[in-house]
Computed example of a mutant assay.
Amino acid sequence: MRRCVRRKGARHPAGKNSKSPEPIGYCSYCGTALYQPWQFHWMYDEDGQRVRKCKWMRRCCERRRQIPGQEESYRRAVLRYGKDGKERWLEGFAKEREDEDE
């Protein structure tokens, strides 16, 4: 019996199929295509909407920094909602909200 032999399509979501599958969605911060439900988690963005966020933090962080405005958007979302999704009104956000209304 052969051991330690990797299957030919094991790492690609399509497997042996030459046509790539349709992604479920894309990461809202780095734009990575997401093919399986285990590749992402739901997160609240800075406006309070639930969005898909990929689970590869290092790659996502590198790609976010290459896209203008995405790193700031991600940081604002984490500061405002955190992991639990409960809104936190910090003084800085209250001032920004007042500026937006004017």
Rank of each mutant, 00 (worst) to 15 (best):
I67C: 05
E46N: 10
S18E: 08
V5T: 08
Q36M: 04
M43I: 01
R50S: 09
M1V: 10
D99C: 05
G15P: 02
Y26G: 08
A77D: 07
K53D: 03
E100T: 12
D101S: 14
N17F: 02
E100N: 13
R7N: 12
R7H: 12
E91M: 06
E71Q: 12
Y44T: 00
K83M: 06
E62H: 07
E71V: 10
M1S: 13
A77F: 09
P23Q: 06
E72G: 02
E98A: 15
Y35A: 06
H12R: 14
D101C: 08
K55H: 05
K53R: 14
P13Y: 01
H41Y: 14
E91D: 15
F93G: 02
W89A: 04
R75D: 12
R50G: 07
Y26F: 09
G92F: 09
G31Y: 09
R2M: 02
E87M: 14
Q70H: 06
R6A: 07
H41E: 11
R75G: 01
V51D: 00
W42V: 01
P13H: 05
E62T: 05
R65E: 10
Y26P: 05
Y26D: 00
G85A: 12
D84V: 02
Y44E: 05
K16E: 07
L90F: 11
R76K: 14
G9L: 06
H12I: 10
K95I: 13
K95N: 07
A94Q: 15
M43A: 00
Y44V: 09
P13D: 02
V5D: 01
P21D: 00
G69S: 03
E22Y: 05
C60F: 03
P13S: 03
R58D: 11
A33L: 04
Y74Q: 09
E91C: 01
P21G: 00
H41W: 07
R75N: 14
E72H: 03
G85V: 03
R88P: 01
D47V: 01
R80C: 11
R80A: 06
L34R: 06
G92S: 15
W42L: 03
R88G: 04
R50Y: 02
A94K: 15
C4K: 10
R88T: 13
K53H: 09
D84K: 11
E22T: 13
K8Y: 07
A10E: 15
W89N: 13
F93P: 03
M57P: 04
C60Q: 11
T32N: 06
S20A: 03
Y35T: 07
E102K: 14
D101N: 15
G48I: 07
L79Y: 05
C27N: 06
D101I: 11
M43G: 01
R63Q: 15
R50I: 07
P13I: 04
R97G: 07
R63F: 06
R58F: 10
D47Q: 06
G15T: 08
G15D: 13
A14I: 01
G9M: 06
A10T: 00
R76F: 08
R7M: 01
K55R: 15
V5R: 15
R50Q: 06
R97M: 13
R52I: 08
R97N: 12
